[in-house]
């Protein structure tokens, strides 16, 4: 076993890890504004990928398909917010956990029946030929994942820092009630966050599909790892999810190499339970102060 293979495995694993990071980032967006996350986010990734595949099959070019897919993801995110989250948040109950799972299940079943149960290839203009960088082989496809992930996270962070609406978003995250007093509607901000989160999920689907193929179960493994990343990194650090995502991707790529491919999921799950035991607020998270 030489360093080169290990390096190669780690790099391609880390690039895949960026997809987990991207989905986890979607959790952070909604958690910031509403302290809730969509437990059916994996199904959003999946149906958005299917929708984008349909767009491609209808003859839309790649550059038109991507925004179309993102828009669809945003719409579905809004559906989750309206049908699953808003009522529970108004009642201050945790019913949203169950409801978002249920809506995900519905999406899953719909996708199964509309698009079929089989895995299908996802055509892309980006080539899968490897290029040699710093001693390891990376495909353009894998690089496109990195570019896409950093581009959308960068854009959203820019939006949050540079526009007034983005600052309002941050204000709601910091103090919902005080933001309301400034005339910022927290309901609309939560909607915005679910829309953005849906788009992020859609992009994750579009980026990962050419590598993994599209099918109803394509996101079931992805989403578990995204959950792990979100919890391990904490639900409030964008920088943290990227780091933890890449680390986890590399780790599991090595685990499947040494222990067998069935154990691929194990590092993420073990990392998660360890993190919960040692640092419940996440490695990059902030501790909360209890009030009475």
């Amino acid at each position: 076993m030489n360093a080169q293979i290990i390096g190669q495995m780690a790099v391609s694993g880390a690039l895949m890890g960026l997809v987990y990071a991207l989905i986890a980032y979607g959790f952070q967006l909604t958690f910031a504004t509403s302290k809730s996350i969509n437990f059916g986010q994996g199904e959003l990734v999946m149906i958005s990928a299917f929708f984008s595949l349909t767009l491609t099959n209808l003859g839309f070019p790649y550059w038109a398909m991507v925004p179309g897919g993102l828009l669809f993801g945003a719409l579905m995110g809004l559906v989750v917010e309206r049908a699953g989250v808003r009522l529970a948040l108004e009642q201050k109950s945790e019913g949203w956990i169950l409801l978002s799972i249920i809506i995900g299940l519905f999406f899953f079943s719909a996708a199964e029946n509309i698009w079929g149960r089989d895995d299908r290839p996802f055509p892309t203009p980006i080539s899968a030929d490897p290029i040699h960088i710093l001693g390891v082989d990376v495909t353009r496809l894998e690089l496109s994942v990195a570019v896409g992930v950093f581009a959308i996270m960068g854009l959203i962070e820019l939006f949050k820092r540079r526009t007034l609406l983005g600052k309002a978003f941050e204000a709601v995250s910091a103090d919902r009630d005080a933001a309301e007093l400034m005339g910022i509607s927290s309901t609309r901000t939560v909607m915005l966050s679910y829309g953005l989160s849906g788009s992020v999920a859609a992009l994750a689907g579009i980026l990962v599909s050419p590598i993994t193929t599209v099918g109803p179960t394509m996101a079931s493994a992805l989403i578990l790892k995204a959950f792990s990343v979100a919890v391990v990194a904490g639900l409030d650090s964008g920088f943290g999810v990227v780091l933890v995502g890449m680390f986890l991707g590399a780790l599991e790529s090595l685990a499947s190499f040494y222990l067998g491919s069935g154990w691929r999921e194990a590092p993420g799950l073990i990392l998660l339970i360890l993190a919960l035991a040692l640092r419940p607020n996440g490695v990059f998270g902030k501790a909360t102060i209890r009030k009475v």
């Binding site: 007034l164 600052k167 309002a168 941050e170 204000a171 995250s173 910091a174 103090d175 009630d177 005080a178 933001a179 007093l181 400034m182 005339g183 910022i184």
Partner: peptide, 20 residues
């Protein structure tokens, strides 16, 4: 209830949110 993570100026700007 100031917005702790935001800058002082951003806090002020958000005060005028509804008419900007």
């Amino acid at each position: 209830k100031v917005f702790g993570p935001l800058s002082v100026e951003d806090n002020l700007l958000l005060g005028a949110y509804s008419r900007l």
